[in-house]
Each structure stands twice: as structure tokens, then as C-alpha cells.
């Protein structure tokens, strides 16, 4: 008891606000375990996310895109060059392109939708279940909880894009002949290098979605109605793409988080143009910074009444 009291005094002296503070010294609890504790919370959060039926339903829906594309083209035959979404015409020649064609289809709507659900639900979902208050009095620490929630959403981004690319490649492998991968520049690279490039594309698109995830997380701290945050996040993704398509608003385009979503194709050039990967990461980083700060500011001061 006395050691706890001494510790409580230390806690009192610490000038922490509602925000996280350091560890406690205790015979029952781990003395200094902040970092590993956060990792374990992240592990638990990921386990929770990926045991949810809903998460698998969304990944299943994403997986359906390459499957449908593969089957449709297998049955109906390929399209001629320059028609339909990019890369679609290459599938009959090389099944490996199913994943990339599916990615092109998934980027504008399906991926943002699933990210909207995951990120929009992050805090608002806990609030609506009432579990937010129990996490906070555990105590999870508000900033720590936000960070963990964001990392879990980011992990989902990667899971989503990998689902599309990997499953697409497998579907293509099964349904079509495969061979060296034709790059946009017109030359070929071996299958192995091609698959590595496809994985890089999945990584690129996952990074592309980080800004949207941050926006979703912020919106999620504003409400206790998860569906509202989910819808708002998805709608923002669509609005941003519409603004990106209006030439009169060109001055805004470089600032849109969707501006570089389709530039993943830069990784399919010879030589690969990594500049756009860096520029995209910078753009998304700026969004994460701004909306992350907004989310923290909002969440740290918020009264949890749910």
C-alpha cells in the first residue's frame, strides 16, 4: 500500500493533463512497460479487428473484385487495347494483371468505402458500444488509444490492398496464361520482378489511403454515431475525387489527398518512378499530421458521455 501511495504522489506531481503520462511502480503491475504495453494493445486491437465478421466481409467484398474481373474476362473474352479500365486489356495475355486491373477498379470507390468504415468506426464505434469508457478507465490513455486505433486502420489499408493484388494475381494465375510482365514503358520484366512490383503497388495504394484514414479517425472522434463518421469519410473521398476531376479547380488539385491515388502506375514504368511514391507519402503524411493533430486535440478535451 505504501509503495502505491508514494507512486500516487509522483503521479500527482507530474504535470500531465488528460494526456498519457509515464509508468507506475508497483509490485503487482509491470513497472515500466509503456512501449511494450502499447504494442500489446496494438496486438489486441489488430486481433479484435481481424476477428470481426465485418472486417472479413469487407475484405471478401474487395476480393470479389479481382474474382469477378477474372471470371468475366475468362468467359466474355478480353477487351481491345485502350478500352475499359487500364490494364484490363492485358489480362488475356497475362493473367498476372488481374490484380492490377482490379486495383484500378477498387481505388476510386471500394477501397475508400472500406477505409471509411474502419477508420470512421474507430472511436465512434467504441463510443456507441459504450466500450470507450471502459477502455479509457482501464486506463488506455486517450492519445495512446487514438494512435493504436490509427495504426489498426493503417494495417487494414494494407490488408485491403494486399487482398486485391494478391488474390487478383492468384485468380489470374489460375484462369489465364502468365508470363513476363509488360510495363507501361513497353518493355518486359521477369515474372518474379513483376510480382515484386505488384507488391510495391499494394504498398503504394495502402500509403495513399493513410490520409483518408486520418480524416476518418478525426471524424470518428466527433460523434458517437459510427455510421455518420463512416459515411462522411467515404463521401469526402468521393468529393475529393470529383474536385480532382474539375479542371477549373486545378489550383486545389495538388492539395487533395486523392490527387496521387492513380499514380501507383509509376511503379510499373521502366525505370520505376519512385518520386511519386515519395511525393504521395509526403502528401499523405501532411494529412495524417493535420487530421491526427485535430483528432488528438478533439479527443483529449472531449467529455466521454456515451
Amino acid at each position: 500500500m505504501s509503495s502505491r501511495e508514494a507512486d500516487a504522489t509522483t503521479g500527482a506531481a507530474r504535470d500531465a493533463d488528460l494526456a498519457d503520462a509515464g509508468g507506475t511502480t508497483d509490485t503487482v503491475r509491470r513497472p515500466r512497460a509503456a512501449a511494450s504495453g502499447t504494442l500489446r494493445l496494438l496486438g489486441n486491437e489488430l486481433a479484435t479487428l481481424f476477428t470481426r465478421w465485418r472486417t472479413w466481409a469487407m475484405l471478401g467484398a474487395l476480393a470479389l473484385i479481382p474474382i469477378l474481373i477474372g471470371i468475366a474476362i475468362r468467359i466474355a473474352g478480353g477487351s481491345s487495347a485502350g478500352r475499359g479500365p487500364a490494364f484490363l486489356d492485358q489480362i488475356t495475355g497475362n493473367g498476372l494483371f488481374v490484380g492490377i486491373a482490379a486495383m484500378t477498379v477498387a481505388i476510386p470507390l471500394f477501397l475508400p468505402l472500406t477505409i471509411g468504415v474502419t477508420a470512421g468506426d474507430a472511436i465512434a464505434g467504441e463510443a456507441s458500444h459504450g466500450t470507450l469508457r471502459y477502455l479509457l478507465i482501464a486506463p488506455a490513455g486517450r492519445i495512446r488509444l487514438l494512435v493504436v486505433k490509427y495504426l489498426a486502420a493503417a494495417a487494414f489499408c494494407l490488408a485491403g490492398t494486399l487482398t486485391v493484388v494478391v488474390l487478383g494475381t492468384l485468380v489470374g494465375w489460375l484462369l489465364f496464361p502468365i508470363g513476363p510482365v509488360t510495363l507501361l514503358s513497353g518493355d518486359e520484366i521477369p515474372v518474379g520482378e513483376g510480382l515484386l512490383r505488384f507488391l510495391a503497388v499494394a504498398a503504394y495504394v495502402a500509403v495513399s489511403l493513410l490520409g483518408l484514414s486520418a480524416i476518418g479517425l478525426f471524424l470518428s472522434t466527433l460523434t458517437t454515431v459510427p455510421i455518420g463518421a463512416m459515411a462522411a469519410t467515404s463521401i469526402l473521398a468521393v468529393v475529393s475525387q470529383i474536385v480532382g476531376a474539375i479542371p477549373q479547380l486545378e489550383a486545389l488539385h495538388p492539395w487533395l489527398f486523392t490527387d496521387r491515388w492513380l499514380d501507383f502506375a509509376d511503379l510499373l514504368r521502366s525505370p520505376p518512378v519512385w518520386d511519386s511514391f515519395a511525393a504521395n507519402a509526403l502528401l499523405q503524411g501532411a494529412y495524417v499530421l493535420v487530421f491526427g493533430t485535430l483528432a488528438i486535440t478533439r479527443f483529449v478535451t472531449r467529455d466521454v458521455l456515451s
Partner: peptide, 21 residues
């Protein structure tokens, strides 16, 4: 438990079990 809330939240809450609403 002798510490100001919510300033010492991290030190206090691990020692508190709660059922809220």
C-alpha cells in the same frame, strides 16, 4: 486515492475498478 484527477489519471485508474452506467 490521494491523487488529483484527471491529472494523475495514469497512476490512479489502474488501482480503480469501475462499472459506469
Amino acid at each position: 486515492l490521494g491523487s488529483p484527477m484527471p491529472r494523475a489519471i495514469d497512476a490512479v485508474l489502474p488501482r480503480v475498478g469501475a462499472l459506469v452506467e
